[in-house]
């Protein structure tokens, strides 16, 4: 995927620079970009290091379990079938909690296991069941409590208040997640069967 992205960006860049008569700027831009890439990661490193450590402290203190307990009454409404049968319930809770804490390395294996279990009880094997759709959609719009990379990059770019976007991000992801969940429940198989 990245290889294709790179190629596409290169082709468009070269074509556009020919069009605007700016070809000579390209080679300088590459040199500058490569240096800036390393620089950027270096400026981010301190921030990523600090927040990685702090998140790990909360994880060891049992934040994942606490969040799971907090979330399960809400998730019960969102995944009615999985919660009534109990199949995949634990994994769903773990996936959503890990996503919220921004630990995608933990969320992905949980998600895979949850999807496998949901697939086993899926009565129409080749189309995704309602709970599967909901879980995947939740994974895409994941509410992250602490957007480390965004803040680190804002800091690296010299923002006056790198953290100021945290609350708008919460509001945005909350509204987006609520709306996609609504869409999920509106397009449930049962409803479509009746239509």
């Amino acid at each position: 995927m990245l290889g294709k992205c790179f190629f596409l960006i290169c082709v468009i860049s070269v074509a556009a620079s020919v069009f605007t008569g700016n070809v000579s700027a390209l080679s300088d831009a590459v040199l500058e970009g490569a240096a800036r890439g390393v620089e950027l990661v270096l400026t981010m490193a301190g921030m990523m290091c600090l927040w990685g450590g702090i998140m790990e402290v909360f994880r060891t203190a049992g934040a994942l379990e606490k969040l799971s307990r907090l979330l399960s009454p809400i998730l019960k409404r969102i995944f009615p079938k999985a919660f009534s049968t109990g199949v995949g319930k634990e994994e769903i809770i773990a996936t959503v909690s890990a996503n919220m804490l921004g630990i995608s390395s933990a969320a992905t294996p949980f998600a895979l296991k949850a999807m496998e279990k949901l697939d086993e009880v899926n009565d129409i094997p080749h189309t995704a069941s309602d709970d599967m759709v909901t879980l995947a959609v939740l994974g895409c719009s994941s509410i992250s409590l602490f957007p480390t990379t965004v803040i680190a990059l804002r800091h690296a770019a010299g923002s006056a208040a790198p953290y100021s976007v945290v609350v708008p991000i919460w509001i945005c992801s909350l509204i987006c997640t609520a709306s996609v969940l609504l869409l999920c429940s509106l397009t449930r198989r049962k409803n479509r069967g009746q239509l």
Partner: peptide, 25 residues
């Protein structure tokens, strides 16, 4: 470690994006 692993992809993509910006695209 996670940040260090970002270096190669960031270098290649930022170079490409610099071309993208400076070349007028």
């Amino acid at each position: 470690k996670c940040t260090a692993e970002l270096v190669p992809t960031m270098v290649i993509l930022i170079s490409a994006l610099y071309m993208f910006t400076k070349g007028g695209a």
